[in-house]
Structures are given as structure tokens and as C-alpha cells.
């Protein structure tokens, strides 16, 4: 089996007396979508924050591309190629769709952004941004102010910005949240292709999407992973059904 791109070992995080994350271990292998599911308050956001660098774990290790990145901050991990999308869109709402995508391309280029050139006339930035927008189907609305986009379009733009980073792995926090069924189905098809470019760690509530997409699933309950396996294995897992899927039966 090939080396995992992203590897989490024994991640533990306490907030006072609350254990938000307890010895969580999982890995993300090339070409796969690894979904993390769990009820509300299971610690999914805490886990993502530790993987992406926003939160320092009390114990455990995060390895990305074979390197220990536990001590690195969000920016350093982003520059290594870890692209994250947010559950609640974190976009520059006053700016146009294209400007948001160009921001991503600017980050991918690295170094200090220029002071006197025109961002929108920069051929390299613009091409990278437009290519990403075309891929998610937002090229028609490139000149629109982001605040005027529909909720679903903002989710697509989140993915487009991540694409401009030419990442080695994606961490997506509920990319389908609040999307209509059609938009959700389209994004599902898109992510299904995207996994061959870079593997995706997918945290998602939409069970249809998760079961359709995931190569592997991890179930997070009260800060612990109670099971990891293929869709079929997880569906058959009694503990999981009791803890989580049982609610939906």
C-alpha cells in the first residue's frame, strides 16, 4: 500500500475538563476520499482545526507528506499544499468571485504579494483563478460580488479557492452544507473526480453524499473514533448503528 499523504496519530485535545479529542488516529491515502462522520458535538471541528494548524493538540502528531507538521502553523501547512474549505464560507464578501479565486492563486505563488502591479491584469494569477472557477462552474459569475452569490455558489467558490492552491490534499468541512439536492449531486460528481488529483478528508453531514463518495469512513463520537472501514463495513458495524446511524433507521 502506498504511503499515506496525511496521517494523524493519537491526537488528544482537552478544553478544561472536556475532552474534545481523544487519541484520534486516521490517515488519508492517495486517491481516496476518507469521510469523517459523527453526531453534533463529536469533535469534528476540533479535529479539523488540529489537522489544519489552527489548534495545537495536547498530545499526538500530525504528519503531512511524510513530515511531522504538528508544530507548524496554518500558513506553513497551507504552503505545503494542505487546502481547507470552511463549513461557514470564509470568503471576502465585498470582493468579486474572481478576486477571491485570485487570492488563492496569490497564496499558491508564495512570497510577498506585489505592490504596484494590477492583480487582475496579472496573467499567471488570472489564468489560475479562471481555470479553477471554470472547473467548479462559476466562470459565468466571475465578475459578481461574492455577497450576491447563492449559498450553494459560495460553497463552490470555497472549493475553487482550494483548487487554485494546487494542493496535495484537501480537508473539506461540510462542503455540501445547506446546498440544494441538485447542487449537492453536482458537487458529489465533482469531488468524485477530484480525489484522483489529491485525496480528500471529508467531514460531512449529508449521508447520501458520504455513502456515495467515501472510500473509507471514520466515525467520531465524543472525541473518539469508534470505527474505521469501508462503507459496507461501517453500515454493518453494530456499535456505529447504535451510536449514530441508529438514529436514522
Amino acid at each position: 500500500m502506498s504511503e499515506p499523504v496525511l496521517e494523524v496519530q493519537g491526537l488528544t485535545k482537552h478544553f478544561g475538563a472536556v475532552t474534545a479529542c481523544e487519541r484520534v488516529s486516521l490517515d488519508l491515502r492517495p486517491g481516496e476520499i476518507h469521510a469523517v462522520i459523527g453526531p453534533n458535538g463529536a469533535g469534528k471541528s476540533t479535529l479539523i482545526a488540529q489537522i489544519c494548524g489552527g489548534l495545537r493538540p495536547d498530545a499526538g502528531q500530525v504528519k503531512f507528506l511524510g513530515e511531522d507538521v504538528t508544530a507548524l502553523d496554518t500558513r506553513a501547512r497551507a504552503r505545503m499544499g494542505l487546502a481547507r474549505t470552511f463549513q461557514i464560507s470564509a470568503l471576502a464578501m465585498e470582493d468579486t468571485v474572481l478576486q477571491n479565486a485570485i487570492l488563492g492563486a496569490l497564496g499558491a505563488r508564495g512570497g510577498t504579494p506585489g505592490f504596484l502591479g494590477r492583480a487582475l491584469k496579472d496573467k499567471g494569477l488570472r489564468e489560475a483563478a479562471e481555470a479553477a472557477l471554470t472547473r467548479v462552474g462559476l466562470n459565468d459569475v466571475a465578475a459578481t460580488r461574492t455577497a450576491e452569490l447563492s449559498h450553494g455558489q459560495r460553497r463552490q467558490l470555497e472549493v475553487a479557492v482550494a483548487l487554485t492552491l494546487r494542493p496535495r490534499a484537501f480537508v473539506m468541512d461540510e462542503p455540501m452544507a445547506g446546498m440544494g439536492s441538485e447542487g449537492s449531486a453536482r458537487l458529489t460528481r465533482f469531488l468524485s473526480e477530484l480525489r484522483h488529483e489529491a485525496p480528500i478528508l471529508l467531514v460531512e453531514h449529508d449521508m447520501d453524499a458520504v455513502f456515495a463518495l467515501a472510500d473509507r469512513l471514520s466515525v467520531l463520537v465524543y472525541g473518539r473514533i469508534i470505527a474505521t472501514g469501508s462503507v459496507a463495513e461501517i453500515r454493518a458495524n453494530r456499535q456505529v448503528r447504535q451510536a449514530y446511524l441508529g438514529e436514522e433507521r
Binding site: 496554518t74 464578501m93 485570485i102
Partner: peptide, 24 residues
């Protein structure tokens, strides 16, 4: 209009975004 201005303007609106694309 510059890349710097674009990034600074975005940092005002959404600092978390600017950080996740690797800028400070």
C-alpha cells in the same frame, strides 16, 4: 488594485481565509 491590496482587503474581511491560503 495590486496583489498586496487584494490580500490586505481580504484580510480585513476574512483573516481566516488569508491564513488558509498561506499568507499572514
Amino acid at each position: 488594485a495590486s496583489p498586496f491590496g487584494l490580500a490586505l482587503n481580504a484580510a480585513r474581511q476574512s483573516p481566516a481565509r488569508v491564513e488558509t491560503i498561506g499568507l499572514s
